[in-house]
């Protein structure tokens, strides 16, 4: 756990040296990663010196890793629970640290719930999940003003089956980066 933390901190530091575009709002598709990979040689080719190329390669690799880490921008909750779970600590930290190091970045945390409640109660539950996720991010280094919390309740489910596999997917908070 500690090792991963140190590694990510190191990588983030590397990123700080480079300008980079924040990842898209939607969950990053595998295609993006491959696109990034294909871009790397092109970027490489453009670089004149070996050190520049190396630095650029490192930066891109870091961007890839960043994107890969940020792909996971949803945290999940057990039934009727709104506290952030330990399993999502890493995800939270990734985003918290990103936000901490990018004061201009803004996110919307969108809370959701499964259908086993009234639509209004679920709106409230989603809002609570968003709020707790925000608090975790702030504890992880993000600042309050960077994070907006909203709720979609049960109105934007990822699936619609009446079973636990589907419900588990819908009990979540999504961290979405606003376009600048």
């Amino acid at each position: 756990m500690m090792k991963k933390l140190i590694l990510s901190v190191l990588l983030l530091n590397l990123l700080a040296a480079c300008s980079s575009n924040p990842p898209k709002e939607e969950v990053a598709e595998p295609a993006t990663t491959s696109a990034a990979t294909t871009e790397a040689p092109a970027a490489d080719a453009q670089a004149a010196t070996a050190t520049d190329a190396q630095a650029a390669a490192d930066a891109q690799a870091a961007a890839d890793a960043q994107a890969a880490l940020m792909e996971k921008n949803s945290v999940y909750f057990p039934f009727d629970v709104d506290a952030v779970q330990d399993a999502d600590r890493e995800t939270i930290m990734n985003h918290a640290e990103y936000l901490a190091s990018h004061p201009d970045a803004k996110v919307r945390v969108e809370g959701n719930a499964d259908e086993r409640g009234s639509s209004e109660y679920n709106l409230g539950l989603g809002q609570r999940r968003a709020k707790n996720t925000k608090r975790a991010l702030v504890l992880g280094g993000a600042s309050d003003s960077q994070i907006e919390t909203v709720s979609y309740g049960e109105e934007k489910p990822r699936c619609s089956e009446h079973n636990e596999a589907c419900w588990a997917q819908n009990r979540r908070a999504d961290i979405n980066y606003s376009a600048q």
């Binding site: 709106l123 409230g124 809002q127 709020k131 709720s151």
Partner: peptide
């Protein structure tokens, strides 16, 4: 946050709502 659950008073002059502006619903 969220603004929701509107409900009219019987005399039509007021509306009750649920707001999360102060934190909780």
């Amino acid at each position: 946050g969220s603004n929701s659950a509107p409900a009219w008073s019987p005399d039509g002059t007021q509306i009750a709502m649920v707001l999360t502006r102060d934190g909780e619903s």
